[in-house]
Amino acid sequence: MFSGVRFRALRALLSDPMGALGLILVLIFVAMALFAPWVAPADPIKLNVMEKFQPPSLAHLAGTDQLGRDLLSRIVFGARTALSIALTSVGLAGLGGLILGMIAGFGPRWLDAVLVLMFDSMSSLPMIMFALAVITIVGPGTGTLILVVVLVSIPAYARLIRAQTLSLAGADFIVAERAMGASSARILFRHLLPNVVGPLVILLSMDVPIVIMLEAGLSYLNLGVRPPTPSWGNILYDGYTSIRAAPYMVLIAGLPLVLSTLGFTFLGEGLRDALDPKLRRGAAR
């Protein structure tokens, strides 16, 4: 019966043009990331100084950079970097936020007070300052980036989940469960979880592009992914430094950022409507 619910949600998502578009864009990027070695026409880090700054052509569909590397291949492999960082960090942060938020919302009041104090002190730190501080201590790299994102985003997710849990814990259908003798575990996992996870999924999918941007931004500042690993931020940086020689590079490096942002945002908005039985399109009355 539960799989039936999911299936209906998927159908509802596809019937919404924006949601379907978001899903398609996201799937394209995921496929690019998963099958990068097969999709990419060339090796993304192989140098060929003879062919540097080639504008887009049949041989190099997106042209080449200052070291003659195939840009399309770099963007395809860059999707791998961007998505693996964004999905891992957002996923870990979401899981952490879910657990801490539900504990805060459903657990004893003193624990709630302690957790809320923690969330508040975490989110009072400015994100970029915090990220720079962590990078200074731990050193730049993929792991650092993920750690920063997880630490910074957990409070926002946890607070959302806590608020949802608190408002639902007093709802009639939860009291009804208690009156029927349901255990706390059953109430938490069978009833609270499905009701709080929807808004979280939406928030997460809308935060993925923010993390992609953050990765690009920090890589652009040479504080994120280390060259020569292809990353959209690195490509953007290269493009910016050679903007006179090859103005197309910046545009081409910016395109995946724009498209993935739109894709995840549309998907998030589509999911919001699709996951809620009340907002589901075509729901028969």
């Binding site: 619910v5 709802a171 009639d172 259908f173 009291v175 009804a176 469960e177 009156a179 029927m180 003798g181 009833h191 499905p194 009701n195 039985p277 009340k278």
Partner: peptide, 19 residues
């Protein structure tokens, strides 16, 4: 005793899990 007692709510719709 929860299996031998039952509670019906004033707002019947709200007492059912929405999902």
């Amino acid at each position: 005793i929860r299996s031998r007692t039952a509670l019906m709510f004033q707002d019947a719709t709200a007492s059912l899990s929405p999902r």
